[in-house]
Design a protein around this nucleic acid. Structure first.
Length: 730
DNA sequence: AGCACGCCGACT
DNA sequence: GTCGGCGTGCTC
């Protein structure tokens, strides 16, 4: 970098596309860029935003070099963020440019927000002081005349019409000035609503505040049952970080449904955090991005993509519900935001807090091994009793023929309804019935694209594939043998349970909640509020009722098919079922009234059921971890590269994508040890390499079999070559 | 990822 | 005879 050289300087720039390395661009004379500068550069026929990277540019045919078009007036992407991009790219084996793209996916946030028009008091006397004018002048006198007002803000504050303001402005009493765009959210106040904590909570909060005070990287797992006050406790850590002048990121699985969280935050800090999620209006996205980069926004509550916001001085990340699968991104760059949050903490030397009532197995293991600091919260306060959980043995008290609710469950629901309380029936299956067959010829309706059964949605009159979204109208006659009226629905979905409930409780107000609900998140929010206000007696829902929503009147929770998640070949089947059923039965019992959770099961002795019924989660975790450890899944091991090839590029890409999806869906990454196991697909010419990590060749072959079994049936040719322990990635 | 170019099938 | 499908190659 010779400043006095006549040659224009050449710098590396990371552009938002899947190149393996930054591209080189000339810095035109008079332009200043530093590593991290956000720039506009020509790329092929278009212009894109890129990030000036570290090191030297060059090493490319000089005739190809093009100049940087412009530098945006925006704080440079920090060193921490640049190292993070490189780390994520290398861990997921995706192109650094694609990771950078996640930071830059904000169309026009790179230039400062335009200032807005304001009015300033000049102390000039108006010609006449009317009553309305007097009100305005009194308003202005109150702040000493030093503050700029917006035209409508002043009119509103003084209780006069806009014409009064305009009149004063015309006389020079108010003069127009430019004021900077207002802050999105008021600054949260760490001492606003400091809570009364129980002894256990205070101890936990002190431990976390110690981590904040100590500076440096650490990971703490806050583990405590629903209602033990995890949120209140980590709010204290947030307060401590804010007091130190740091920014805070709170990751939540699905921001769209976390209104309750935002309200609680407001109660504690006197202001709401800025929200960040994919449904945010573009204009809002830009403002949040910009103000986060400037450090004006102190706290962000966001979905996983918030991890790529350009925080100026991030000092704490909280990952709420750390076990939630929604933290996994399963397209383009495959990552688990929980693990990437840990990486950010390590790179930025600040603490990370993982919170969950039902932590993931790997976080438990990390806490046990001392890698993560365990903060355990004692059970919920005495006044909010834990629900009593029972297993309903379906072999002993089976439902009536053709029905799915055991008399035990029906009685419990009846009790609730008669007492004027609410009941929740949980079944994690949308639609009416998961399988339809012809009683005449045995034909089963299958998806033409991915060979799973088509789920009947009676309300819509359709057969739908829950895998790929394929749908067709439900025919009158069997497409195989042409027989009419012989199609029969097998098994229950929420719609069918609703039918059964309507028959058993014709006078009760029932409501079905599933992602099929027409009207989107808005409607869902309304329905949830309605339930909370007691406007339904019986709610029938899929897993979306399990997510952190409080129903104060809910005293009975019935799980229709407790075994549902246990049957498939998912290595996390037991863990997931335990987590889901814990959360769902935890919806009951927040009222102080006696409450029950009833789980219908054919396997009352299954470790998951025993743990749920006894309330001894630790027993379950111990068993599950022992089983994993006895198995073949140590955290560090050898690497296998699986090379998938096909006749055409598209075909090979398709195979690789399918396998990668399967690997992510089956958790082959984090089962193997979070933050250490690389898995990705590397594009070559008609060849893609997929990396897995395990201890022995046999494990690799096992994973491979699992991947192949889990991948949709490949079309065309699929050749798979397994290359154990490729040196290049060790 | 986006975009242009180029090569083969059904239509104004 | 052209429009348009996607398969391929390229971007400092």
């Amino acid at each position: 970098m010779t400043q006095d050289s006549l040659e224009p300087r050449v710098v590396p720039v990371l552009v938002p596309m899947p190149a393996e390395a930054p591209y080189s661009y000339q810095v035109p004379p008079g332009m200043t860029v530093v590593p991290g500068s956000v720039v506009r550069v020509p790329l092929g026929p278009r212009e894109v935003a890129g990030i000036v990277w570290d090191g030297e540019g060059g090493g490319v045919d000089p005739r190809k070099l093009r100049p940087i078009s412009a530098v945006f007036d925006c704080p440079p992407i920090t060193e921490r963020m640049r190292r993070f991009v490189e780390w994520v790219a290398s861990y997921t084996l995706s192109a650094p440019g694609m990771v950078a793209r996640m930071i830059l996916r904000v169309p026009t946030a790179f230039d400062p927000e335009p200032p807005i028009d304001g009015l300033l008091f000049t102390a000039t006397k108006p010609d006449r002081v009317t009553p309305a004018r007097a009100k305005v002048l009194a308003m202005l006198a109150e702040d000493g005349g030093n503050l700029a007002w917006s035209r409508s803000g002043l009119a509103h504050a003084a209780g006069v019409s806009l014409t009064v303001i305009d009149g004063l402005a015309a006389q020079g009493v108010l003069k127009p000035v430019q004021i900077p765009a207002p802050a999105l959210v008021p600054e949260p106040d760490p001492s606003y609503g400091a809570p009364q904590l129980t002894d256990g909570q205070r101890k936990a909060a002190e431990a976390l505040k110690g981590k904040i005070g100590a500076e440096g990287f650490s990971v703490s797992l806050i583990d405590g049952v629903t209602g033990s006050g995890k949120t209140e406790v980590y709010f204290e850590a947030i307060a401590a970080a804010l007091q130190k002048g740091k920014q805070v990121l709170v990751l939540v699985p699905e921001i769209a449904l976390t209104q309750a969280f935002l309200d609680r935050f407001h109660d504690r800090f006197g202001a709401k955090p800025a929200e960040w999620h994919s449904d945010l209006a573009p204009r809002m996205r830009e403002r949040v991005w910009r103000q986060v980069a400037e450090g004006r926004v102190r706290v962000v509550a966001g979905a996983r993509s918030a991890l790529f916001l350009p925080f100026k001085e991030l000092g704490l990340i909280v990952v709420d519900e750390e076990h939630d699968p929604a933290y996994k991104q399963e397209d383009r760059v495959y990552y688990n935001a929980r693990d990437m949050a840990v990486v950010q903490g390590r790179l930025g030397r600040f603490p990370v807090l993982l919170a969950s009532a039902t932590p993931s197995i790997e976080s438990k293991v990390n806490a046990q091994s001392g890698r993560y600091h365990l903060v355990h919260l004692p059970a919920r306060f005495a006044e909010a009793a834990m629900p009593s959980i029972e297993a309903v043995d379906m072999r002993r008290v089976p439902p009536a023929r053709g029905q799915f609710l055991s008399p035990v469950l029906i009685d419990a629901v009846r009790g609730s309804v008669e007492r004027g309380e609410q009941a929740l029936l949980f079944l994690n299956r949308r639609g009416y019935a998961p399988l339809t067959l012809c009683r005449s010829c045995g034909h089963r309706f299958q998806c033409p694209q991915c060979s799973s059964w088509l789920v009947e949605h009676r309300f819509r009159g359709q057969l739908i594939c829950h895998h790929c979204g394929h749908h067709e109208a439900k025919p009158e006659a069997c497409p195989e043998c042409g027989t009419f009226d012989h199609l029969v629905a097998c098994g229950p979905g929420v719609e069918r349970i609703a039918e059964e409930v309507d028959a058993a409780f014709p006078d009760a107000r029932t409501l079905v909640l599933s992602s099929d609900l027409l009207g989107g998140t808005k409607r869902l929010r309304l329905e949830l509020d309605a339930i909370a206000k007691g406007e339904a007696d019986i709610v029938i829902g899929t897993q979306l009722v399990a997510k952190g929503h409080n129903f104060p009147g809910m005293t009975t929770v019935g799980v229709v098919d407790g075994d549902l998640g246990l049957a498939n070949g998912d290595p996390r089947a037991a863990e997931r079922t335990f987590q889901l059923l814990s959360q769902v039965t935890g919806r009951a019992g927040r009222t102080g009234k006696a409450s029950r959770g009833l789980i219908q099961t054919y396997q009352p002795d299954h470790p998951v059921m025993r743990a749920l019924v006894s309330g001894h989660a630790e027993t379950f975790y111990h068993q599950e971890i022992a089983e994993r450890q006895r198995g073949q899944l140590p955290p560090f091991g050898r690497l296998a590269a699986i090379i998938v090839s096909g006749e055409t590029r598209a075909e090979a890409e398709g195979h690789a994508r399918a396998m990668r999806r399967a690997a992510v869906a089956h958790d082959l990454i984090d089962i193997l040890g979070p933050a250490e196991a690389p898995m990705a697909v590397v594009a070559g010419r008609h060849r893609f390499r997929l990396l897995l990590q395990g201890a022995r060749n046999a494990d690799m072959q096992g994973y491979l079999r699992m991947l192949l079994a889990a991948s949709p049936k490949p079309r065309g040719s699929l050749r798979v070559q397994v290359d154990i322990d490729p040196q290049s990635f060790l």
